[in-house]
Nucleic acid binder design. Structure first.
Lengths: 249, 249
DNA sequence: CCTTATTGTAACATAATGATACAATAATAA
DNA sequence: TTATTATTGTATCATTATGTTACAATAAGG
């Protein structure tokens, strides 16, 4: 794990990996009423990047995505879904990886597999912010949450990848019932509404929201939560239905 | 075009193509109240397959999908969308292509690029059945429409690819307004309802369907259509909004 | 001109959602 | 203890969308 990139780097032909194919994961979390994504800060570079990786030549592509997700969050059984393949020729830009390798003191040959054109399969994941344990990889200084409102400058087309992931999340939020994956196990109706409002980027009517959510029959009322505020205590709920990791992964 | 496969076949290393990456397109048509898909019948084989292809190393992936679509239907400006990446290791099966090459009198070396593991990007297209001109490729005897109800035995996991494409179409039908792409330019409300019923595989209420469709404000009433039947003639409609080929392709 | 099948739409019932109002209640201050 | 305050849970009514039935308006054909 820790020597992973070193192995990929010294492996000039990319033996053992599917060539030209990569995975990028947009890992969403929710904290302080803000949507966050996990980003890596690359060493010797001002660039930030999405957690990504390559696929072993005997590995399922979806499994590789889970592997990447687990290695950056220490979480398994997470909601994870493919959302788009980024395959434009204009993405092709070997400069960032070359810079990274040079900074590591390694001069790659021109035909190094990591410098060739890559097509990237975009996945998005929904994780419980409080449970994830962000872990940088070998070539990054840090792995941290960044609010969607204040993203740093990102490598290549990673900004567009995040944008498209968010669009997909917005479209899927009501259809599939996936929002709960971003909350802790127990939450108030206010937490849930705040999450929905943040993702959809619009205010929702409290009464109608509560009625609809309760009407779905997927929330179990647990107990009351005394926050210390001078007002009625809200109920805590938990999601009943099985927290399916995904449709088909 | 006609010598395309011969070039891919004699090109042992796959020079000029993205390695290990393929495209499979589920091309939907609608005729006689049935959903159809375009399938190729391979020479010297009882197997049928989805139209597919490879990606040039200087070509956008989406552009490659359009190229495949155009070469099998002689149509451009068609609704086309990515729907899933099929990347399980269990898909890996060089046998069919090897059989095809052997039947052509060509014995490929073991390391031939076409015999390696491929990940396939699934696209689905919605075309006007009356406008498409199905054209087989070099290694197939025929390119024809097959009703979804009576599909022949398909190569590899192509049956699952079709199933997943249909699921996606069903999910997208109401959200995006894409059904019109399967009809001729002018159609009756009955045609449209029949299309919806076929795709969704359920009966719809005529009055409610008509009210909803007209309420969308995307249909223009053209003229009446006298079919010769002993009854009131239905109006012909055409789709107003710009027939967008896709979201983002 | 009468029958027949089908279309377009009105009319009503039911369900879903938008909007407002208010009682319940947990802290705090008087 | 009691009043005050903020927030929650839900009832109520308004509006919109959808399900259902009914019926008038045709285009043939006898």
């Amino acid at each position: 794990m820790n020597k992973e990139f070193e192995q990929q780097e010294s492996n000039i032909s990319g033996e053992g990996f599917l060539p030209g194919l990569a995975i990028d994961t947009v890992i969403f979390g929710f904290h302080d009423s803000q949507l966050k994504v996990l980003l890596l800060a690359y060493k010797n570079s001002s660039l930030y990047a999405l957690p990504g990786g390559f696929i072993y030549d005997n590995e399922d592509v979806n499994q590789a995505a889970r592997r990447v997700l687990e290695s950056r969050t220490a979480l398994s059984d997470i909601y994870l879904e493919q959302f788009y393949v980024f395959g434009d020729y204009s993405r092709y830009d070997p400069a960032p990886l070359k810079t990274i390798m040079l900074a590591r003191g390694y001069t790659p040959p021109a035909n190094h597999w990591l410098l060739k054109r890559f097509v990237s399969i975009g996945y998005y994941a929904l994780v419980d912010f409080t449970k994830a344990v962000p872990a940088p990889d070998e070539i990054s200084d840090s792995c941290n949450w960044y609010s969607l409102d204040e993203l740093p400058v990102l490598m290549q087309d990673h900004r567009q990848i995040i944008d498209k992931a968010l669009q997909t999340l917005q479209n899927n939020l009501d259809q599939k019932l996936i929002g709960f994956n971003l909350l802790t196990d127990e939450f108030t109706m206010g937490d849930l509404q705040s999450l929905y409002e943040t993702i959809l980027n619009k205010k929702l009517l409290r009464a109608a929201f509560q009625r609809k959510m309760l009407g779905l029959g997927i929330l179990e009322r647990i107990a009351k939560k005394w926050t210390g505020g001078a007002h009625k205590a809200p109920y805590l709920y938990k999601f009943i239905s099985n927290k399916v990791p995904a449709d088909n992964i």
